[in-house]
Simulated scan of single mutants.
Amino acid sequence: MNSITPTEDYWTGYDDYPDYNNSPGTSKVSAPPCKQDDIYGFAKMFSPVVYSLVFILAVVGNVLVLCVIRRYKSSQNGGACAFSLTDTFLLHLAISDLLLALTLPLFAVQWTHEWVFGWAVCKVSGALFSLNRYSGILFLACISFDRYLAIVHAISSGWKRNTCHAQIACASIWVVCLGLSGVDFAFTQVSKIPIGGNQEMAMCQVWFTENPAQWQVAMQSVSVILGFCLPLLIMLYCYIHIFKSLCNASRRQKRKSLRLIISLVSVFVLCWAPYNCFQLADSLQKLGLVKGGCQFGRVVDMGIVITESVGLSHCALNPLLYGFVGVKFRRELIQMCRELLGQRGLLRMKDLRERKLRKMTGSFSSAESENTSYSVMV
């Protein structure tokens, strides 16, 4: 949880910037703090609405993804290692996004009133927020790499695309992200902070008592590198080579694939690039490389509040991008809904029509069909 709330009190100049928590024994030059009334006033109105909306959409979408994957896996009658690689990553992605969404109501309540859930819940929710933000983005990179192996190296990568290997990769990602979230667990606490005038507000945040600027710059650097730059490079590399390999496909197939590839990369960049840019600007200010004073700090704080909410909306968009764009996924979802409504006869007729239609239109490509026919995603 790097920036659930605006950054610490920014001051008129970085040279006059005191220790973050006024640690005893730290020499500092006194300087008048910048006013933050407008920052907290805006966050109290903006954040609860966005968090609540993202929570509802993310829970509904990712629960549907989990239900469809479970139904599809049961119909395949296979063990854990018989599960599709794509569906393995999609399953972990949905779990990660769902857990991330479940923390949002707590922070929505925090902005509406203040943190009222106690010290233990603060630490756990802060660690869960960080854990699932990192893991969700890294699982997106894994899905991109799996598509790259399935399409670009369809024949030679058969031995590499083993589902048990995917389970090991997912476990490794969880362990790495758990280690990263350990910092949040260790330093997250509930503290009273001034929000203007004589008012104080109990906030659940990461607080560093020693060398706060250095710690925060380090954490923001990790967030930018592991949470944006590295996954983006993987996605761009994979999808550029995927598109090159599709040049031999029909014009219609190529156009549909291009739209999907552009949408995947564009949504990821649009959701997380602004937040990481403001994180970078905040780090430059802490390092003293930018001295914009109160106005610059106010813009950075306001930008972090807005762009973090935009980034969090990605966990609600993932089910649409990686699930509902798939014809097979939509078919499984429709089947599940109709079975719940008892329309089995109509469902069988629909299946026959869809099978005939698929025979007429053909497959995406021979290599793609061969390597993803057991995935509910495509």
Rank of each mutant, 00 (worst) to 15 (best):
G303R: 11
A273T: 04
R298G: 06
S245H: 15
D282I: 02
S283L: 05
I261V: 15
Q295G: 07
S283M: 12
L289Y: 14
V290C: 03
P274D: 10
K291T: 10
L280G: 07
N276S: 10
L320C: 12
L264Q: 05
F296P: 00
L289F: 12
A273H: 08
L321R: 11
S257I: 02
E308C: 05
G303F: 09
S313R: 10
S283T: 04
Q295S: 14
L280W: 10
G293I: 08
K256S: 00
C294H: 10
K291I: 08
S283V: 01
S309G: 02
F296M: 07
L280Y: 11
K286W: 03
V299C: 11
I262W: 11
N276I: 02
Q285D: 12
I304Q: 13
G311W: 04
G288I: 04
G303S: 13
V310Q: 09
I262Q: 10
G288V: 03
G297E: 03
F268R: 00
S266R: 06
L264I: 10
K291P: 02
S266I: 05
S257A: 15
C277H: 06
C277N: 05
G292E: 04
L258Q: 08
C247Y: 09
S250D: 14
V290S: 02
L312Q: 07
C294A: 10
G323M: 05
G323V: 07
S245E: 09
F268H: 02
Y275R: 05
N248G: 15
L321N: 06
S263P: 02
S245W: 04
L289V: 12
R259S: 10
S250F: 04
C294R: 10
V265E: 06
S309M: 12
C315H: 04
L320A: 14
G293M: 09
K286L: 14
Q285W: 05
F278R: 02
N276M: 08
R251M: 08
V269H: 05
G303H: 09
P274Y: 07
L287M: 13
F268G: 00
K254W: 06
S250W: 04
C271V: 05
L246V: 01
Y322T: 11
I262T: 12
K254I: 03
V300I: 15
K286I: 01
R298C: 05
V300Y: 01
L289E: 12
G293A: 10
T307G: 08
R252I: 07
G311P: 05
K286F: 02
A273F: 15
I304G: 00
G297D: 05
C271I: 07
K291R: 12
I306G: 00
G292R: 03
R255K: 14
L312K: 00
